[in-house]
Amino acid sequence: MKSPLPYHILPLGDHALTIELGNSIDASVNQNCIAVFHQLKQAGLAFVKDIIPAYASVTVVYDVTAIRKEKPSAYLFMKEKLEILLAGMDLDQPVSHRKIEIPVCYDLSLGIDLQEMSQEKNMSIEEIIQMHTNKSYRVFMIGFLPGFAYMGSVDEKIITARRIQPRTNVAAGSVGIAGEQTGIYPLDSPGGWNIIGQTPLKLFDAKRENPVLLEAGDMVSFTAIDINEFHIIKGSI
């Protein structure tokens, strides 16, 4: 049985539209977004320049001028095309997720906020590491930086608000927590997440054919490694 997909389409400026599929951070809403994203990509719609899934929405960027050569309204044309596609979509099919394991070194030299978190939460550092490595996380969306994955949700005991003073530079590979989300900085960047460790993997590498390691919909788990393993893996990449 196909269940109707609740959605709402609205313009984003004069050259894009957003399909809203919910208004919360929720795995099943996000699952629908990822399914819509993949099916739209597969449909290979003409005039589409970008399809961008987010937590609870999918945005489609299109070529207004090219559509206007044939149709009176680019927005209405795209909206109608999408409505037809959305009506025919089967979202109840089981979906396969890529399962990705990311080695993380939680050494205090790299997990520079672990000590503070441990004091604040009255938990040992080992407990924090155990909670972070204990479950797998959904990549809800990619944004902020090339390849920056917003993942969730962490155990409520290690939910930690963003730092009041963001750092001017966080090292590439740093693994952080912000609220209930966890993420990895793909590049050196300013940032306000609480840094608990670092992965030796490159989340972003412009020279790779696919420069970005994680994509929306992936399921990610973290494995603790020690500082020696960290340097060995880092040296081999």
Binding site: L12, A16, Y55, A56, T59, G143
Partner: peptide, 10 residues
Amino acid sequence: LISTAVTKGT
């Protein structure tokens, strides 16, 4: 608000 795509001119 939860994050969504933005675009040039927003």
